[in-house]
């Protein structure tokens, strides 16, 4: 998730965005369940602000409105909810794989470029780390046996798994920025229990981890900064690997 765009929920909920920003945010909103929930709540809140300035309209308005709607045809209902693009699990064909790879690279690069702008001194370090990560990511994404595992609602993130490489790439969805003293930690869960698969340094950037032999599930939890030996909170992401 892009934390920057997420702060627009407030302005969006009360129609305080320009047309351009509004369209951009609506695109984001369609993919961000947390944002939709927040927008809905802030709209309820705004409705109360509006109700607080209630004023009786002129008496004539009621008969006018009731007469007018008799001449207006109603829209038919929507034909069911929009079907999400991804199902639970499916093998990737080469074309969609290329698209997924491009999207992941674009997300990672976009985020990195922004942070480099802010801190030019660290640009070189970040660039080499990025190149490294990019190479790993591309490796997993381009593996012949790569497959995508996603949530039903595909909100919190998805995995690309390659058994052949023994690696997985976690592509975060809409994880909120953790508190200053917390971090996201990745876990692989097998019959022996949970084993750390590393931290998620930035909740909007994809990471690659080794799978190991016996892992059955992949999870993400919020842990105190620096990570924990074992998960100490309920997973925010939990996906079966097979």
């Amino acid at each position: 998730m892009n934390a920057e765009i997420h702060t627009l929920t407030g302005a969006y909920a009360i129609n305080a965005l320009s047309e351009t920003e509004r369209s951009a945010f609506e695109e984001h909103l369609a993919r961000c369940a947390a944002c939709s929930k927040e927008v809905a709540e802030l709209r309820e809140t705004a409705a109360k602000l509006g109700s607080a300035v209630a004023t009786p309209p002129p008496e004539s308005l009621r008969p006018d409105v009731l007469a007018r709607i008799r001449r207006v045809r109603q829209l038919p209902p929507d034909e069911g909810p929009i079907v999400p693009l991804r199902g639970r699990k499916w093998p990737l064909r080469a074309t969609s794989l290329a698209a997924a790879a491009a999207a992941v690279v674009a997300i990672a690069l976009g985020i990195q470029v922004i942070s480099m702008d802010r801190d030019l001194d660290r640009a070189n370090d970040q660039l080499s780390a990025l190149t490294d990560r990019q190479a790993q990511l591309s490796g997993v994404l381009a593996a012949p046996d790569a497959r995508v595992i996603a949530d039903d609602d595909d909100v919190s993130g998805s995995l690309v798994v390659s058994e052949k490489l023994g690696k997985l790439a976690f592509v975060p969805g809409t994880l909120p920025e953790p508190a200053a003293d917390e971090t996201y930690q990745l876990w692989l869960i097998g019959p022996e229990g949970a084993r750390s698969a590393g931290l998620l340094p930035d909740p909007s950037v994809s990471v690659v981890a080794e799978i190991g032999a016996d892992a059955e599930m992949f999870g993400v939890t919020v842990e105190p900064k620096g990570g924990s030996e074992q998960p100490t909170s309920d997973p925010v992401v939990l996906l079966a690997l097979s």
């Binding site: 627009l8 407030g10 009360i14 305080a16 709540e41 309820e44």
Partner: peptide, 20 residues
């Protein structure tokens, strides 16, 4: 202003008891 708008609305939401 962007963050104050959001923070302000969130505080109002909590104060007014709007939650799901």
């Amino acid at each position: 202003v962007k963050t104050r708008l959001r923070d302000g609305l969130i505080r109002l939401r909590d104060c007014l008891g709007v939650a799901k």
